[in-house]
């Protein structure tokens, strides 16, 4: 329990991508993460993949949470993943996706580097625990 590990704070970016205007879920998870002691950066609505990439790279977040309820995940998520790769941020960022993702689309997203997908009804604590356990080391 050194002074160094005490300073360790998990940083998250909660992102809304594309034309999806439903942000209640993103707000709720932002707040839950904050109350769990995380530092949360909320992107705001209607962000382009480029903005999410820029924010993830610059803020050096441990976790990128993408909230999508519009059904455009097959288009938007790959763009974000490719951008993260380009800037060398893919390997050490935990990417989670929340929202409405049909079962048949999930394997493909996971293959592209998404670490977990949380659908409707996932208990908040489950997501928080997942992040705590899997947040990459920032040595």
């Amino acid at each position: 329990m050194s002074a160094d590990s005490e300073q360790r704070t998990i940083r998250c970016l909660i992102a809304k991508v594309g034309l999806d205007g439903h942000d209640r879920g993103a707000h709720v998870i932002s707040r839950a993460f904050r109350d769990a002691g995380f530092e949360v950066i909320y992107s705001g609505l209607h962000r382009a993949p480029d903005e999410i990439i820029q924010a993830t790279v610059q803020e050096d977040v441990d976790v990128l949470g993408i909230s999508i309820l519009s059904g455009a995940h097959n288009t938007l998520v790959p763009k974000v993943m490719a951008g993260l790769e380009e800037y060398g941020a893919l390997d050490d960022t935990l990417v989670i996706v929340g929202g409405i993702i049909p079962e048949e689309d999930r394997p493909k997203l996971l293959e592209q580097g998404v670490d977990a997908i949380f659908g409707p009804g996932t208990p908040m604590q489950e997501t928080i625990d997942f992040v705590k356990e899997n947040a990459p080391e920032r040595a």
Partner: peptide, 20 residues
């Protein structure tokens, strides 16, 4: 209390979208 924070300033950076 929790050490948690919501950092919201980034939201306003609308003029410099995607500009690294």
């Amino acid at each position: 209390y929790t050490g948690g924070a919501v950092l919201g300033d980034r939201i306003r950076m609308a003029s410099n979208v995607g500009d690294m």
